[in-house]
Design a protein around this nucleic acid. Structure first.
Lengths: 250, 250
DNA sequence: ACCACTGGTTCACTAGATAAACCAGTGGTT
DNA sequence: AACCACTGGTTTATCTAGTGAACCAGTGGT
């Protein structure tokens, strides 16, 4: 890999993103680079309006401009534009919060959200990182992936998010088989306590998962008696998105 | 400005973001740089998983990873986290779509959205660029800005978005004065036909605008008889957000 | 007064970025 | 089928521009 300075600059961006308002020395330590190098990257990025420095605290953070540039990422926006209509229909049919998540490495990123009108709401900020094994979207995604991918993913440490997160690999495999059989995934309070979600993967032309959709709501409303109905609706929405995405397969 | 290669790399990112799936030659032409330079930047960024290339078409686009990094930009997420609760209250009070927009240069970026339960919905994707003079959020932001900022903004070309967009500078100035007097802005179909919005600026400790919130809905529901009620609610929400943001400023 | 930090600067060294010319493949025109 | 105008990608000689270590100055705590 070439272009050392670009690599450090991007690593600076990612580190700043992770640490939020962060100082020069800490950044340099974290990236194992000299302060001069990091500062150079920071000032260059500042000139490009990607990072900014708080005048008083001297700490650095990412600007809204960085966000504005990156939201329009290809993977993101094309799938999202396609997904909006089916998501809207799904939201109206279920009256619960609908999520669209797309993959980034071994996690999913929350790409879009349509809210429930209910006062009692689940709230997940856009851009949230969603672990595959702890969410309805993630389980649906895993179930649609190849076995090799699943086993590779199982190599990583499957951390608990809540006390009801599934972390046992054999239990997860059983669940994945169940997802494949029934066409949608179920996640009961594995990501946030009190929230149950049903998810389905969006399949590309080759059957590969492009992302997933889900409906989420308080466990008091998303009760087992409704799983079949809502699950079918989620499955249908995912299928509709996949169909719409097929021709313009990026 | 130093660090040439970083500058070109970032410019590559921004150009790719603008042009979506784009080829090497076109990028090089656009950036006025040699293909070797652009390609070097692209391959480096590819290694960092910020851009990816479609195997068949050879065209480049931004990855979801880029998005994942940038959504957590400081300006973005801190204000958004603070704004969620008041926005939620505003959404419940009005039952219309609520937007949070934050500034990036001379435009606003749509940072967060809470949806109306109504079937008839305004829909603006997250990350949309919102012109200041063509939106309720923008007019509210302008009205809260210093006169010098407004006049500088008026130097730029004020393009029409719809046929009802205000573009006449004296009309806009009058409207800005009206906004200051009444505490909220009104935008009747200036951004999307059929959609009316009411907005208010979020003020930082020094009275400087940090962003704005708005309620939007079809002009058939957001009728003049409701302006006062909804306008007051928006104003109150903006004030609540500003108050909450004041202590932990940046 | 000292210490352990911080952000930022200086400078000699050389690694690494640059542009222009070039190659090879493709789709359309004549 | 020969040509043309593109495309993406490679090579190489030149020299710009990025690097780290040591250093300075400011700050808060003991």
């Amino acid at each position: 890999m070439s272009t050392q300075s670009v690599v450090t600059a991007i690593r600076v961006i990612e580190a700043v993103s992770d640490e939020q308002p962060v100082g020069l020395s800490e950044l340099a330590r974290e990236l194992d680079a000299s302060k001069a190098t990091v500062l150079r990257a920071l000032t260059t990025l500042e000139g490009l309006r990607w990072v900014e420095q708080n005048d008083s605290s001297k700490l650095w953070s990412l600007t809204a401009h960085a966000y504005a540039v990156a939201v329009r990422s290809g993977a993101m926006s094309t799938l999202r534009d396609i997904a909006i209509a089916p998501m809207n229909a799904l939201q109206l049919a279920t009256t619960e919060t609908v999520h669209l998540a797309i993959p980034d490495g071994d996690i999913l990123i929350l790409a879009e959200r349509l809210d429930t009108p209910h006062v009692l709401r689940a709230f997940l900020p856009l851009g949230s990182k969603i672990p595959l094994h702890a969410s309805a979207t993630g389980l649906a995604y895993l179930a649609a992936a190849e076995d090799a991918y699943i086993h590779r993913y199982f190599e990583s440490s499957l951390d608990s998010v809540t006390e009801r997160t599934l972390t046992d690999r054999t239990v997860l495999l059983d669940e994945i088989r169940a997802v494949r059989a029934r066409g949608y995934s179920i996640n009961e309070e594995g990501l946030s306590t009190g929230i149950t979600s049903l998810g389905a993967a969006i399949l590309g032309p080759g059957g590969d998962p492009l992302g997933s959709v889900s409906v989420s709501g308080p466990s008091s409303r998303i009760v087992p008696e409704r799983y079949a109905e809502y699950g079918a609706a989620v499955h249908e929405a995912a299928r509709a998105i996949g169909r719409a995405a097929a021709p313009g397969a990026r």
